[in-house]
Design a protein around this nucleic acid. Structure first.
Length: 308
DNA sequence: GGCCAGGCTAGCA
DNA sequence: TGCTAGCATGGC
């Protein structure tokens, strides 16, 4: 069955899915001009495909019939995932005042942040990604989902939903270290899942808190540092003014963009970012994307040079 | 072969 | 309170 949601103005679906196709190869599969993945509703996991239809709306197709309640829930999850409530116009106006930053915008007009469908998934993905290059992190996430997720068949393909917190809470550390997660990350992931199951940690109850309060509450758990909360704020809670000032990718991007000899420190990043508020999440996201694109270009250039 | 990844913790001064 | 070695492995 199909649902549709209108896209906001300044929304480029094409540019927005590019990044998903690149970084979420493990969970997203393209078929019949739609991007498919498993999504967990409160009642069950389903397989969902999305595309932009001829009317310019987001079209969502589910592998199975959905109840009225499930339809509402799915629309809410998709609105959040694809940042459909975000109007980028004021962000672009602000960026126009900074020519260097603005140089990254024209190639990314309408490019929106793609968030995780749920907070637990976001937390675990972020912990797995700590201190790893994104490509290896993607491999580990893929193994984790394949191993412990629920399998659903659709369009002659198998999809795995993100593992439930109950399932993960029941695992042994060894179940994760065999996937090549480190002993410590295995402990973080399983201990946090147990804390959630036992009611010691309730991610959704923090929804109405301020960024600072969420930071204070979550950072007290083992395995969750500043960076992890910042990612959770951006990709889980959907906060628009997050600055992961110590993030290596953001610092590399600023170094490259400003043509600096050295990588800016966390303090210097805060100096760069003093006029980014209240759009720091978007500036960060655009700079991350700028960095990946530039890396790709330099790789192609090097390859061409070597082949000559 | 060595250094670096969209970090975090424990242990030490 | 602030600093840093160690974690672990793929990619370049």
């Amino acid at each position: 069955m199909k649902l549709t949601i209108p896209l906001p103005k300044e929304y480029s679906f094409e540019k927005t899915i590019e990044r998903v196709k690149e970084f979420e190869k493990a969970t997203e599969h393209e078929k019949d001009k739609k991007l498919w993945r498993a999504i967990r509703l409160s009642s069950r996991a389903i397989v969902v495909g999305v595309c932009k239809n001829e009317a310019g709306e987001l079209e969502i197709e589910s592998h199975d019939k959905l109840s009225r309640f499930e339809q509402m829930e799915l629309k809410e999850i998709m609105t959040h995932r694809w940042s459909l409530e975000v109007d980028l116009t004021p962000f672009y106006k602000r960026m126009a005042q900074n020519p260097i930053l603005y140089s990254t915008i024209p190639d990314r007009m309408g490019f929106h942040i793609v968030r995780d469908p749920d907070l637990y998934e976001c937390l675990i993905r972020t912990i797995i990604s700590q201190q790893l290059n994104l490509s290896f992190a993607g491999t580990l996430i893929h193994r984790f989902i394949e191993q412990f997720g629920e399998k659903i068949s659709h369009l002659d393909m198998w999809f795995s939903s993100f593992p439930t917190v109950e399932r993960v809470a029941d695992l042994n550390y060894e179940d994760l270290t065999t996937l090549q997660l480190t002993q410590r990350k295995a402990e973080y992931i399983i201990d946090l899942s147990r804390a959630i199951v036992e009611g010691k940690l309730d991610l959704s109850s923090l929804q109405q808190e301020t960024d600072e309060e969420i930071m204070k509450r979550l950072i007290s758990f083992r395995g969750i540092g500043r960076w992890t909360v910042e990612c959770l704020l951006m990709f889980g809670y959907g906060r628009s003014n997050v600055l992961p000032a110590a993030d290596i990718g953001l610092r590399n991007a600023l170094q490259l963009l400003y043509g600096s000899d050295t990588r800016p420190s966390e303090t210097e990043v805060r100096e760069f970012a003093k006029d980014w508020s209240p759009y720091a999440s978007y500036v960060t996201f655009y700079l991350w994307d700028y960095l990946t694109q530039q890396k790709k270009i330099s790789k192609v250039t090097k390859k061409g040079y070597n082949e000559r």
